[in-house]
Computed example of a mutant assay.
Amino acid sequence: MTAMRMDRTVSAAALEVEAGFRRQAGRLAVVAGLLLTAVGSFLPWIEGADLLSQRIVVDGLSRQADGALLIIVGMGQTGIVLSRSAAESRTMVIRVLPTVLGLVVLLTALTAHLDAATVIHGIESDGGTASISAGIWVATAGAALGALGGAWVTLSDRVRRGEWMTPGEYRQVLDRRTLVPVVAGLVGAAAGFAVGIMTALIGRTPDLTWGYVLIAALGTVLGGLVGHRIGRRLVGRHP
């Protein structure tokens, strides 16, 4: 009976630590940034009317689909910052990844403004009128919040857990038995993303929808897993 109580106490303590881990300010900022980005991507980014006064509405998942890319990268960043194993990793690449992905999201949001300006120019060239709408600003705010949260997570983990790796650990990471599966996984993820997008576009309109985002995300995950397994087999490690 005493052992069972101790087990329950340990389990409760572990859950409390886990909950506290995910309530850290930087991680909450990344999650909030993803939610804002997703909401903003569904809202209109451009509104106007064509030459015949017919209404034009372009959201973040249409045309260049910058909103879709924001959501996909934001999901990856959120998965990293909510992973305890990633936070406890001493591998520099893993520890810096939240910041890198945050910058990718932010740069994508800035690119979205350039794409929106191009679309507006095209509409106006055809005799219509158009302007930036609130959705793109909501998505941009989410991207900025995610980038800030990612940088905060990287810095706070660095301060909290100290040095990243010793020279010996660097050599271990660069060993082919470790490096090949990682590289193969990244290549597989990129290939899976490309195949997912191409599959979604074949025989369809070039505008991406939320369903296409899910297909691309699924392709990325499956491609990464397959690539990682292939990499492990290449170096003689069991999956």
Results as ranks from 00 to 15, higher is better:
Gly196Asn: 06
Gly79Lys: 01
Val235Lys: 02
Leu36Glu: 06
Thr178Gln: 14
Ile136Ser: 03
Arg160Tyr: 05
Gly102Lys: 00
Ala109Ser: 15
Ala65Cys: 00
Val213Ser: 01
Val31Thr: 15
Gly122Thr: 14
Gly67Glu: 02
Ala14Leu: 09
Phe193Glu: 05
Ala87Gly: 06
Leu82Tyr: 05
Val105Phe: 09
Gly142Thr: 07
Ala190Ser: 13
Thr118Phe: 08
Ile80Thr: 11
Ser125Trp: 08
Arg23Asp: 10
Ala49Glu: 15
Pro44Cys: 05
Gly128Phe: 08
Ala32Ile: 10
Ile123Gly: 04
Trp210His: 06
Gln64Asp: 12
Val182Phe: 13
Ala144Gly: 00
Val221Tyr: 11
Gly26Pro: 04
Gln24Leu: 06
Thr2Cys: 00
Val10Asn: 11
Asp175Thr: 09
Thr2Tyr: 08
Met4Asn: 14
Leu225Met: 13
Leu148Tyr: 15
Ser133Glu: 12
Leu35Trp: 00
Trp152His: 09
Thr199Trp: 12
Gln77Lys: 04
Pro206Gln: 07
Gly79Asn: 04
Gly74Asp: 02
Thr91Phe: 12
Gly142Leu: 08
Ile197Thr: 11
Ala130Ser: 04
Gly127Met: 01
Leu15Asp: 14
Val57His: 03
Leu174Gly: 03
Val30Pro: 13
Thr129Pro: 02
Gly40Asp: 10
Leu222Trp: 11
Asp207Arg: 00
Ala68Trp: 10
Ser11Gly: 03
Gly223Leu: 07
Val153Ile: 09
Val105Cys: 15
Ser156Gly: 05
Thr108Cys: 08
Ala13Cys: 09
Met165Trp: 08
Ala190Val: 15
Arg23Val: 03
Thr154Lys: 06
Arg5Cys: 02
Trp210Thr: 01
Gly79Tyr: 01
Leu234Lys: 07
Asp157Leu: 10
Ala3Met: 11
Val235Gln: 02
Gly74His: 02
Val226Asn: 09
Gly203His: 07
Arg23Met: 10
Thr91Gln: 14
Gly76Asn: 01
Arg63Asp: 04
Leu51Lys: 13
Ala117Val: 05
Val104Thr: 10
Val30His: 12
Ala130Met: 01
Pro98Asn: 02
Gly188Pro: 06
Trp137Tyr: 15
Gly227Gln: 03
Ile120Met: 06
Gly185Trp: 01
Val57Ile: 14
Pro44Ser: 01
Ala143Gln: 09
Ser156Ile: 11
Asp157Ala: 05
Met1Lys: 11
Leu101Glu: 05
Gly26Gln: 06
Arg158Ser: 11
Ala32Asn: 10
Leu155Cys: 01
Arg95Pro: 03
Leu225Ala: 14
Leu174Ser: 06
Ser53Trp: 13
Glu163Lys: 14
Val39Thr: 02
Leu82Glu: 05
Thr108Val: 08
Thr154Arg: 10
Arg90Met: 06
Asp59Pro: 00
